[in-house]
Structure formats: structure tokens, C-alpha cells
Computed example of a mutant assay.
Amino acid sequence: MMRRRVLITGASAGIGVALARVYAEKGWDLILTARREAAMQALAAEIRAAHGVDAAVIAADLSEEDAPERLIEEIAARGLTVDGLINNAGFSRTTGFLATEPQAHAAMIRVMLSAPVALSRLVLPGMVERGFGRVINVASLAGQMPATGGDTLYGPIKSFLIKASQGLWLETRGTGVHVTALCPGYTLTEFHDVNGSREQVSSAYPAWMWQTADHVARVAHDSCEADRPRVTPGLANNVLAALGKLLPDDVALRIVAGHARRLGRI
């Protein structure tokens, strides 16, 4: 039986690493991409030894405008086929909209919004033609809540990914392609260390609100295989997502304003 191959962006840390391990465990070959090649090479060696699958590594910076096209060209040049795509690469800016340079905003939009759109458009035709494909767009619980001041673009970008995933799910029904938006809440990864908010979020929220990256990755895999257009891991996160829909805007905005103040963002 031919093994499938999944392309995972942001595969050098956090949820991306957990997803790589889960998909390798399930028998998928991998294409790992991120900026940090050394971290990916170490992960690829671990995965090959543990599961006997192939793991290709391609360093790429998705903040560069033509990076998605160059990445897919390199994959094709290596004679590889993308049967699954996980758009996981991302970061946040918590210093406030006005205190963040426009170039940093542009990079955030390219990595987290433009690149997933471009990569999906590049690989989906082949998936549909072959009658098989899996796409996971790593969104966030934040995409189901009012935007948070101080991290102004993050929630709206994740909301876009959710809506785009739902549209693609509808558009590809009956083709053998599954599209899922993954909406994790607080997850134990390096994400908050990178954006400098580890101390604030750790003190602001109790341990029961946090999930492991491995749990989130397994929920993502199983939900995409079940062809669910959206999944939010964790009961508490689903309750929060429901409240985000039901509460009047003024009440919801006061709540997220309190959240931002606890984190020192406004």
C-alpha cells in the first residue's frame, strides 16, 4: 500500500512537532518546513528511527512573498507528492497594534493568512484529481472570540482561517478531500515564550485550561479523518467558544478587555 505524505509548516516547534509525530505514528511520510533547519533535522531523525517513515526537510521562510510557490517547486523537484497539508506556521505580536512596525504586521499576515491560502490553492487541485487529500488549518479559539486589544490581528487572522476552511470543506465535499480548521485554546508549547507572554498567561489562567500539544495534534488528526470542518479541543474551550457567540458584543468586549489587562496588553 502506498504511503501518504503530509506537508507540515511551522514544523520546528510546538504543535507542528506534535503533529509530525502523530502523523508519522499513523504511517504518513512527512515534509517538514520552517525556518529553523537544525531543529527539523533533529525531529526528522527521531521520526525516522521511531516509525520507519520518510521525513524530508525543506527550510523556508513563509514571510517571504513567493515562499509558497518556491516551496511547492522544491517539493516537485524532489519527486514528492503532497497528499496532506497542515498550515500550522504562526506567531503573534503582543506589543500592541500601534507599537508594532508595519513590516512585522505584513510578515504576520503573509505567514498566517496569505501562505495558507497560497499553499492550499497550489496543492488542492492535485488532491482533488487523485481523489484523496487532507488539509488542516491551525486556527485558534481566539478566532471564535472577539479580537483582543494588544494582539489585534491574531484573532481576526484565525477567524479568517476558520471561515476559509469551512468554505473549502463545502467546496471539496465528495472529492475525497477533507478540510478541518483546528481551534486550540491555551496549549503547552514554546509559543508564549517566543512572544514574551509566558509569565502573564501562566499566572492568569489555571492549569486545567491548558492542553498538551500531543492531545491537540491527536484531536486534529482524528477530526480531519472524520471530515469535521472545525474542531475545538477541550470542553472548557468549547464552552468559551459558545459564550463568544451568545454574549452581546458589549459584554463580550468587556470580558476580552479584562483578559487583555490581565496579560498586560492594554
Rank of each mutant, 00 (worst) to 15 (best):
Q144W: 08
Q144N: 14
M145I: 06
P146C: 13
A147T: 09
A147D: 02
T148F: 01
T148W: 00
T148R: 00
T148P: 00
T148S: 05
G149N: 05
G150K: 05
G150V: 11
G150E: 08
G150C: 11
G150Y: 12
G150M: 11
G150F: 09
D151F: 10
D151V: 14
T152V: 12
T152S: 15
L153H: 07
L153Q: 08
L153A: 15
L153K: 04
L153V: 10
Y154I: 02
Y154C: 04
Y154M: 01
G155P: 09
G155H: 01
G155N: 04
P156C: 13
P156W: 09
I157Q: 02
K158C: 02
K158R: 05
S159D: 11
S159N: 11
S159R: 04
L161N: 03
L161I: 12
L161D: 06
K163D: 12
A164Q: 14
A164M: 15
S165R: 02
Q166N: 13
G167R: 10
G167P: 11
G167W: 11
G167H: 08
L168S: 09
W169V: 02
W169P: 02
W169H: 15
W169N: 06
W169K: 04
W169C: 00
E171P: 05
T172D: 10
G174E: 14
G174M: 14
G176T: 12
G176L: 10
H178V: 00
H178A: 15
H178P: 09
H178W: 05
V179L: 13
V179D: 12
V179T: 09
T180A: 01
A181S: 07
A181C: 07
L182W: 13
C183I: 01
P184W: 00
P184Y: 03
P184R: 05
Y186P: 15
Y186C: 00
L188F: 07
L188N: 13
L188A: 11
T189E: 08
T189M: 03
E190G: 04
E190H: 10
E190N: 08
F191A: 05
F191P: 05
H192V: 04
D193S: 14
D193M: 06
D193N: 09
V194F: 15
N195G: 11
N195M: 14
N195P: 04
G196S: 07
G196A: 13
S197F: 00
R198G: 02
R198C: 06
E199D: 13
E199Y: 04
Q200A: 15
Q200P: 06
Q200T: 10
V201F: 05
V201I: 15
V201E: 07
